[in-house]
Write a protein that binds this DNA or RNA. Structure first.
Lengths: 236, 236
DNA sequence: GCAAAAGTGTTACGAATACACCCATGA
DNA sequence: TCATGGGTGTATTCGTAACACTTTTGC
């Protein structure tokens, strides 16, 4: 084995962001149109390069906020992608991140720049390079995450109604869910706090607004060290 | 945004391998002693650099096999690590992989070189750089994986007994499990095939050897697209 | 014959599912 | 008054957990 750094090639390190958005109705993905060759005019994820004074996480945040203007967005690393010829221009590995954002808080100041556009998650155009692989992995990861913990708080406004939360889950799973069972399970998680206000935008009766209780949430998360066990140990 | 590659810094890309091994009894981790500065004499994960003609996956395999002599080992990407000062020598990002290997098939031809040593998973020494973070993440990931799918086939010989499989799960979860419940659940997964041979090494009575049915396994895995849903959709 | 590990079955409990009606309101 | 979406309760099923004794055999 060879430990001398200088004998090894360096490599471009890119970041690509899979940006999920939810507008109280549909789950969407933010894409940009490339305005340079190769593949000019094709759609792509938002990306950029790692600079020397920033960590991977910081670079992903920077790229996300430089392209959308948004800060403090929930962002999580998905995976490193490193096929030799994944980028035809130069040897580049890319670390993909996914973000969840709430379009109702933010939609005004979003997207006009850089030819960015929101696409419904089930009507995506062809993407460059290995970006489709990234997206499908991110979708799987989001579903997985949603099945283990109450995701969705990042995708919703500070207060939200249960029908809205249900729509988010339905969008993530691309299916419909039973209202009563959904409510029971979400409420039994004990991380929601009911307010006494009602949201009347979408119905005449109005739906109660809930908010997310961060303390209860992290309490729940740490209960099993974050992971459900396949088996419960015997009581002894 | 700036798309010209040459304006961006390149960066060293390292790979680090978290190598889990199981010897029919304990779960272990393979570490090497650094024989160069900085941190000479300290323990570290096995690592190396990405070369220009190989993908990340290929590089991880190469490093694993160059240090252990083993090929075709189960290897999965864990995460990219990219803090600015994680490596004091030069700016380097590292993509960590974890491997599962079965020490009974392989132990003879392993480890003597490079000052490598197997450590019980609960008695690890201090590690260099961010390697401890990598290990604890890998442990969590292994547990998580084991809770969703019958892991362990990579860590066991071609045939194995149910008590051996149970010991593996107990090692992964660092707990003890009820024999009857364990057997029922594992067998109900329908991926094991009983042989008519018995393993008598560890008891007078002897335990039946089982083997893993790859076809049934991948069938099971693809059932829910790999992910359990939080909710089952209504029948309609 | 006994020590040591392998193997086996049943009950009890709790979580997930299926399912249908009433409520509040604005138009 | 009626159309629209919000809200609620229960019986059933199924999976998981708890729990103790018998079998085999080498010594």
């Amino acid at each position: 084995m060879d430990y001398s750094y200088s004998e090894h090639k360096q490599c471009y390190v890119a970041l690509d962001c899979i940006i999920f958005g939810f507008d109280r109705k549909d789950l969407k993905l933010l894409l940009i149109k490339r305005n340079f060759e190769p593949r000019k005019g094709d759609w792509s994820l938002m990306g950029g390069f790692l600079e020397s004074d920033e960590s991977l996480d910081e670079a992903a945040s920077r790229i996300l906020s430089s392209l959308t203007g948004l800060k403090d967005i929930y962002l999580e690393q998905l995976k490193g992608f490193g096929k030799v010829d994944r980028d035809p221009v130069a040897r580049t590995i890319s670390v993909a991140y996914y973000a969840l954002i709430n379009l109702n808080d933010h939609d005004k100041n979003l997207l006009p720049e850089f030819g960015a556009k929101w696409f419904p998650i089930d009507e995506l155009p062809n993407l460059i390079f290995d970006h489709e692989e990234m997206v499908s992995l991110a979708k799987a990861r989001l579903r997985h995450k949603a099945s283990n913990q109450p995701v969705g708080f990042e995708l919703l406004p500070d207060t939200f109604t249960l029908p809205e939360l249900q729509q988010l889950y339905e969008a993530i799973y691309e299916t419909s869910l039973d209202k009563r069972n959904f409510r029971r399970r979400i409420l039994s998680m004990n991380v929601l706090e009911k307010t006494d206000k009602k949201q009347k935008k979408y119905s005449k009766k109005g739906a109660y607004l809930y908010k997310f209780d961060e303390d209860k949430y992290s309490e729940q998360k740490n209960k099993n060290g974050g992971t459900k066990m396949m088996f419960k140990p015997p009581k002894v």
